[in-house]
Simulated scan of single mutants.
Amino acid sequence: MLTRTAPRAALSALTPSLRLTCVSAASAALQFQTQKFHASSAIRKGIYPDSADPPAPNPESNNVAGGASHVKEPSPLTDPEYHEYSEHYFNVLLSELEQAQEDGSDVEAEYSAGVLNIIVPGVGTYVLNKQPPNKQIWLSSPISGPKRFDWILEGDQMHEKQDSRPYIHGQWIYLRDGTNLTDILNSELTLNLPKDIYGESEE
């Protein structure tokens, strides 16, 4: 009966060249088994050109604003309302920019014919302009890129309390991802625009 050490004793009895051949053959066999194991594992788990497309981990939601289900599309605006709300927003923004300049900011602003250029040294130029045909405000930012903002006014829906509705007095919102124009300007230009610009105008 062979013990566990018998193969090692038998191997030591061989000539050095024959012993090396046996060791090399055993090593090659072990390497082949290891490679074979990894290859078969990769075939089961890998994705190849002829593989079926995997399902998306998070299918896109129908909620384009990324918020409550009722913030999906612009609130209706008449032409006079659009001009009033957009002009009010630009006036508040210009006042805030003037205050920033008085506080020592290097930001420069030029406003003409519904187009506001905000020049930030070392960053670039922000362009905000009114789009009356679409009733939108467009922003081109050197940081976050171009966005088109629609007027959103929440109503008394979804069993919400009035002070929990962020758009109760109206906000300019990028419907694709729910981004708020005021939030972008405050963040990127380090301004202090009030969150509820239109609510404060009513007080």
Rank of each mutant, 00 (worst) to 15 (best):
S95N: 02
D53L: 10
I47E: 13
D177I: 11
P59M: 12
L97W: 00
N134I: 04
N129F: 08
G114A: 08
E203K: 02
P76K: 03
P74H: 02
S86F: 13
H38G: 04
T78V: 05
T78E: 01
S95H: 01
A39R: 06
N186W: 10
E203R: 10
S141R: 00
A26I: 11
Q162M: 04
E81H: 05
F90A: 05
T21Q: 09
Q101V: 03
Y48T: 07
S51T: 11
S61G: 15
I173N: 07
T5P: 12
P80L: 10
R19G: 13
G114I: 11
A100E: 07
S61T: 14
W151I: 05
L2D: 04
L116Y: 07
Y48N: 05
G114Q: 13
Y85V: 06
L128N: 14
Y126C: 03
N58K: 14
S95L: 11
V127E: 00
L181T: 06
E73Q: 08
A25Y: 13
G199S: 01
D163A: 10
W172L: 00
P132T: 00
N58Y: 14
N180H: 12
I197L: 09
L128Y: 13
L30C: 03
P146Q: 13
D150G: 02
Q35L: 04
L128E: 13
E108A: 09
L30A: 12
S24E: 06
N63I: 12
L94V: 13
P76N: 02
G124T: 04
N180A: 05
S201T: 15
P49C: 01
T125I: 15
L18R: 14
P194S: 04
A39C: 09
P55H: 14
I143E: 12
Q101R: 12
A29V: 02
P59T: 15
K195G: 13
L191W: 10
V115C: 08
V123K: 01
Q31I: 05
P142M: 02
E154T: 11
L93A: 01
K135T: 12
M1I: 10
V23E: 05
W138Y: 11
F90V: 14
S24I: 05
L193D: 12
E154I: 03
A10K: 00
Y111G: 00
E84K: 15
L11T: 07
S105T: 10
A109P: 01
S140P: 06
L77Q: 08
D183E: 07
D150K: 04
W151H: 12
I137P: 10
G145E: 05
P59R: 15
D53A: 11
P16V: 03
S61K: 07
